[in-house]
């Protein structure tokens, strides 16, 4: 796996995007995440807001941006469910922080690395969700490992298509 030091990576590239992309892409992810399951039914195995958090967090050296974006998107995701607001918020806050922290150490332009990172963070996200819901809040919930594994695989495949598309909006210094 190609590994770069934090210093060299900061010097090499910092992904910047137009403000409109920062506003519209998360919104589109939220809308599509809510709308597509109506068409795909039980086969909606993906988490688009998670992909957006991972993508933007990996491209920035400061963990604060990824952390805040994860927090905001997670809270909005929670607001669309009947669950307490903050479960996805906590999960995606942590994912944003970890992604940003890792993004300065690895080559995030490599497709294999991206897919592996998305798979790992998706599995971590599922586990964190279960931990917050069952352990932290003490609420009862039946759990299936397939509900974590299938969205992780789906996220990996979608990342292969979406991340290069989002790269086109990148501002090159």
């Amino acid at each position: 796996m190609p590994v770069l030091t934090a210093t060299s990576r900061r010097e090499l590239e910092i992904h910047r995007f137009p403000v409109l992309v920062y506003a519209l892409v998360p919104l589109a992810a939220l809308v599509l995440q809510a709308w597509l399951p109506r068409i795909l039914g039980r086969y909606a195995w993906f988490d688009l807001p998670l992909l957006v958090v991972i993508y933007f967090a990996l491209g920035r050296p400061s963990p604060i941006q990824g952390t805040v974006m994860g927090c905001v998107l997670g809270i909005f995701e929670d607001a669309l469910t009947q669950h307490p607001i903050g479960i996805n918020g906590v999960v995606k806050t942590l994912i944003g922080f970890f992604s940003s922290s890792l993004g300065v150490r690895v080559d995030v332009d490599n497709h294999t690395v991206r897919v592996l990172l998305v798979l790992s963070f998706s599995l971590l996200s599922g586990g964190l969700y279960f931990f917050v819901y069952r352990v932290l809040l003490g609420l009862s919930m039946d759990w299936r490992w397939l509900d974590v594994l299938l969205p992780a695989l789906g996220n990996g495949l979608i990342a292969l298509a979406i991340f290069p598309l989002l790269d086109r909006f990148r501002i090159h210094d």
């Binding site: 995440q33 809510a34 709308w35 597509l36 399951p37 109506r38 039980r42």
Partner: peptide
């Protein structure tokens, strides 16, 4: 029906 929660947990 216009949309869903977007997650299988809800």
């Amino acid at each position: 029906v216009i949309g869903s929660s977007g997650t299988t947990q809800s």
